[in-house]
């Protein structure tokens, strides 16, 4: 696994509150290769966003309780080395937020916000001295080179009239344009990995496909890996190379995208796929009976067991990741043998 870009191993964490310890992430394993577009799929509240924020190191520190595991990024232990993580954040790993409407600062122009980003995170930035944040210098030649890169990138995300856009305030541009802007800002530091947390949820359906297509194309062109969290298997199918499914804070199955849709092995994955409306419009949507477990008192072992018709006593211990095919890992004692979904299609 020396070629891995991001390796999350056995990550366990949660939040301590008045009601007790909410055990959000339970022994999560996940690997990403450079340039790979990975869909992190699961229902709302399954821990996708927590995992994304853990990688970025922006979880609320007061309540956070780390139970174990590691996040390795190109050989750096992100959880152990705070300074290294701070250097990576915004530079080697960037972020596309869920809600482009509230993620830009309303009282500064777009240009000023991009300028500050470039001042601190431009790939042309050397080792800056120990200046206080508000007084740090921003050399003229680097500023000009950065500005050229900004214009180039804004054009690449198909934002018209970039010079004019930079003088505008966030409330003066549309949601779709703002999300294009967030993509541009994520690309500008020339990172190795972009974490896109449900980047299209807040947008109109008509714009969602455009934005995802744009993200896919630019990431491929520039060789940037993307971790896309989504609850929408359809968009994951369209733009991802690989998919990892999470259920209630556990990774249950990971596979390359074609293998994933051809031969889903975990019972939860199968239920999830079966709950999708059919392409022909036929076939009733089937929900999954039962409820997502309470994070304050999760079931032992596989957290899907209480809702799983295949579950047995053995499920009270969490199974290890078992290979099912090239790059296909599943955590299940009773995996689905036949590719049910593929048969249905045939």
């Amino acid at each position: 696994m020396t070629d891995a870009l991001l390796t999350i191993s056995d990550l366990s964490l949660g939040f301590r509150g008045e009601a007790g310890f909410a055990h959000i992430l339970d022994g999560v394993n996940l690997t990403m290769r450079p340039g790979e577009i990975m869909g992190l799929v699961g229902e709302s509240g399954c821990g996708k966003t927590t995992l994304a924020r853990a990688i970025l190191g922006v979880l609320p520190r007061a309540a956070l309780e780390l139970r174990g595991g590691a996040i390795g990024f190109r050989g750096t232990d992100m959880l152990a080395d705070g300074a290294a993580q701070a250097a990576i954040r915004g530079r080697r790993i960037t972020f596309i937020p869920q809600d482009p409407f509230s993620s830009l600062n309303p009282v500064f122009t777009i240009g000023e916000q991009i300028d500050d980003l470039m001042k601190w995170k431009s790939p042309r930035r050397g080792e800056g001295g120990r200046w206080p944040a508000l007084l740090a210098p921003y050399g003229r030649s680097r500023r000009a080179a950065d500005r050229a890169a900004v214009i180039e990138t804004l054009e690449a995300v198909q934002l018209p009239q970039p010079e004019r856009l930079l003088r505008k305030y966030p409330h003066e541009v549309s949601g779709g344009q703002r999300q294009r802007l967030m993509i541009a800002m994520a690309l500008l530091p020339e990172p190795d990995l972009i974490i896109a947390d449900e980047p299209t949820t807040a947008l109109d359906v008509t714009i969602q496909a455009q934005i995802l297509g744009l993200l896919r194309r630019l990431a491929s062109e520039r060789g940037v890996a993307v971790m896309l969290t989504t609850h929408d298997l359809g968009s994951a199918w369209e733009i991802c190379d690989a998919i990892t499914v999470m259920y209630a804070g556990q990774d249950v199955e990971a596979a390359p995208v074609t293998e994933f849709f051809r031969a889903p092995a975990h019972p939860y994955t199968n239920k999830l796929l079966a709950s999708l409306p059919d392409a022909e419009g036929g076939g009733a949507m089937t929900g999954i009976p039962g409820e997502v477990p309470d994070f304050l008192a999760p079931p032992p072992g596989c957290r899907f067991a209480p809702r799983c018709e295949r579950a047995s006593a053995a499920c009270a211990t969490r199974p290890a990741q078992t290979p099912r095919g090239p790059g296909h890992l599943v955590r299940c004692v009773h995996p689905v043998a036949a590719p049910v979904h593929a048969e249905a299609e045939a």
Binding site: R53, L56, V58, A86, I88, R89, G90, R91, T94, F95, P97, D99, S102, S103, L104, N105, P106, V107, F108, D116, L117, W120, K121, P132, A133, L134, M185
Partner: peptide, 28 residues
């Protein structure tokens, strides 16, 4: 707010976020 989360996730220095980006909003 979300923009502070975003600015933090993009690794901007804490001092810049507090004394520039947060303060201007708070001053309204």
């Amino acid at each position: 707010s979300n923009f502070v989360l975003y600015e933090t996730a993009m690794g901007l220095p804490r001092g810049l976020i507090i004394w520039k980006y947060v303060l201007r909003n708070a001053l309204i």
